[in-house]
Design a binder for these strands. Structure first.
Length: 291
DNA sequence: AAGACGTGGTT
DNA sequence: TAACCAAGTCT
């Protein structure tokens, strides 16, 4: 097996154009990289940056976070979105501290067993933190491969086995090179081969791109989007949780009732938050972040 | 396996 | 402006 036809161009492009992100610094700990990966799930880099810095300053190791309550993690998460990630990150810290000697595991399967760590994140940590050879297949890479290899503007809505096979086939044989390749393709997707208006003029592999060769045909598949946000249970949950996050003390029910008019939906959302462990119903009738 | 799950910026 | 998009995971 030899390096794929894009690797040299993509790697060179990355050397010259990579963003200077703190979790990519030479001394970045595996824990700091894991934190960044969880935060970056469905969340833009610019919003993660300040949150990551504050988080790492407060909890520099898994043991530090494990000593605090999950509720503090949720509070610190603030408005990053998908607050279950804060709970899972806290659970990661607890597992790493209690079952792995306080050290972030370097084994893909073990990483995968951690809460909130799926196929992508396990591969990313194993690759970026430990220099291992794993296929990195996030939304950026899927888009780059869809265009460069398959010749279509967007990848399928849900990840296919064919995409995994393709990504694995492109992996350079040398682990350190493969790890570099993984971030490089991601970065290419994030900065050049973007979803909306790709900067094909700046693309290092435009001459080898199947989509460009085909004249960049517009996406012709089914609509790619889901529901709107306003009025959903998700919005209601967000409102409810914000009340608890912004209060130093447990809050009484009326304070929650005040932020969402529809009573049926409000109760459903609150029940959901409790079921998810994001909200703790106290015996005195008040509500609090989990302790 | 389709859908739930936050939030905010951009087009 | 409504829709789309952002380093996914879990059920």
């Amino acid at each position: 097996m030899s390096d794929n036809p894009y690797s040299t161009a993509v790697l060179a492009w990355y050397e010259a154009n990579a963003r200077d992100l703190p979790w990519r610094a030479p001394g970045a700990s595996p824990w700091s990289i894991l934190v960044s990966e969880i935060m970056l799930q469905q969340t833009p880099v610019v919003r993660v940056l300040p949150a990551w810095r504050a988080w790492m300053e407060r909890w520099p190791t898994p043991a530090h976070l494990a000593e605090d309550s999950p509720g503090e993690a949720v509070r610190m998460w603030n408005r990053l979105g998908y607050p279950r990630r804060a709970l899972r990150l806290h659970a990661c810290a607890t597992a790493i501290t209690g079952e792995h000697g306080g050290v972030v595991p370097d084994d893909h399967a073990t990483l995968l067993s951690l809460p909130g760590v799926g196929a992508y994140t396990a591969a990313a940590v194993a690759s970026f933190a430990f220099g291992q050879r794993h296929a990195i297949l996030d939304t950026n890479v899927r888009r780059v491969l869809a265009r460069a290899e398959t010749g279509v503007e967007y990848p399928p809505k849900t990840q296919t086995k064919a995409e995994v096979t393709l990504a694995e086939s492109l992996l350079p044989p040398e682990p350190s090179v493969a790890a570099r390749w993984g971030v490089a393709v991601m970065e290419l997707g994030a900065l050049v081969c973007t979803a909306r208006s790709p900067a094909c003029a700046d693309c290092p592999i435009a001459v080898q791109c199947a989509w460009t060769a085909a004249g960049r045909p517009a996406y012709s598949g089914p609509p790619r989007r889901g529901q709107t946000y306003a009025g959903t249970d998700r919005q209601a949950r967000g409102r409810l949780l914000a009340v608890l996050r912004d209060s130093a003390e447990p809050v009484a029910k009326p304070a929650l009732d005040a932020v969402w008019d529809d009573g049926v939906q409000r109760e459903r959302a609150l029940d959901g938050l409790v079921a998810d462990g994001l909200v703790d119903p106290l015996e005195d009738g008040r509500y609090a972040l989990p302790s």
